[in-house]
């Protein structure tokens, strides 16, 4: 709405040429974790007022779908429906620990801010997040490190049960084939239902039981979890 109003008023004032902000950017993303996968990435350029997520606020249903099950379709539709531009799934699948996807080209048009999200597997609702980073107007190469956030929508029980649908408890999968079974479940006493910095996973060393189906020697992380390099042409 805001954009439309601004445009209209400029037109009325007889200013027919809007400032040209179009920029071609090239993005690379590296998974910095020890043993976690990222689900298909959503790379989005949008206006200054838009957000895929904001810490300290409740996750949208679209964000929840991405964080709990890796589904970026609704977030993508929200961005493109608001005149943003996106690149979806540039790695053509999962991005393994240590792996990179590079030379992702994006013509930002007149969009000024960049956001990036992807779910971290295996987790209940952790995701990597870049929230509304202002794209520099000066040509150059810029490096940004991303933290892992907790969508705040699902208890971190650390049970791998295929649960990736909206609101379904549990973790969809451990793509590395390094998950356990028969965990009794980690008690998550967090009452923070807003998006927050993820506390990390606990895991254990018992692949056939224990509290968690995650492996504390494989699936833990410390921030940052992703490295993003943006080249402004």
């Amino acid at each position: 709405m805001k954009r439309t109003l601004v445009t209209a008023s400029l037109m009325a004032a007889g200013l027919f040429s809007l400032p040209t902000l179009a920029a071609d950017i090239e993005v690379s993303v590296t998974n910095l974790t020890h043993g976690n996968h990222f689900t298909p990435l959503l790379i989005a350029a949008h206006d200054a007022d838009s957000h895929l997520f904001q810490v300290g606020t409740e996750a949208s249903a679209a964000l929840q779908k991405m964080a709990e099950g890796g589904d970026i379709a609704d977030l993508d539709a929200a961005v493109t429906g608001n005149a943003g531009v996106t690149v979806t799934n540039p790695a053509m699948g999962l991005l393994a620990a240590g792996a990179s996807v590079s030379e992702v080209m994006l013509d930002t048009g007149d969009n000024t801010h960049l956001s990036i999200v992807a779910m971290v597997l295996p987790t209940n609702d952790a995701f990597i997040g870049l929230d509304g980073w202002e794209i520099p107007t000066e040509a150059g190469t810029y490096t940004v490190y991303l933290n892992a956030y907790d969508a705040g929508t699902e208890a971190n029980d650390e049970i791998i049960n295929g649960g990736g649908m909206l609101g379904a408890p549990g973790i969809p999968a451990a793509p590395g084939g390094d998950g356990g079974t028969n965990g009794t479940g980690v008690m998550d006493s967090s009452e923070n239902a807003n998006v927050h910095t993820h506390p990390g996973v606990l895991g254990d060393t018992d692949p056939a039981g224990g509290m968690s189906d995650l492996d504390s020697r494989v699936h833990r992380w410390l921030n940052p979890v992703a490295k993003v390099v943006v080249t402004v042409k």
Binding site: A97, G203, T205, S216, W221
Partner: peptide
């Protein structure tokens, strides 16, 4: 180990399940 440089996941310690 995994044989690529990455952000260290932190140490676990004997008091957090790594006997």
């Amino acid at each position: 180990d995994v044989d690529f440089v990455h952000i260290h996941p932190g140490v676990i310690s004997m008091y957090d399940g790594l006997d």
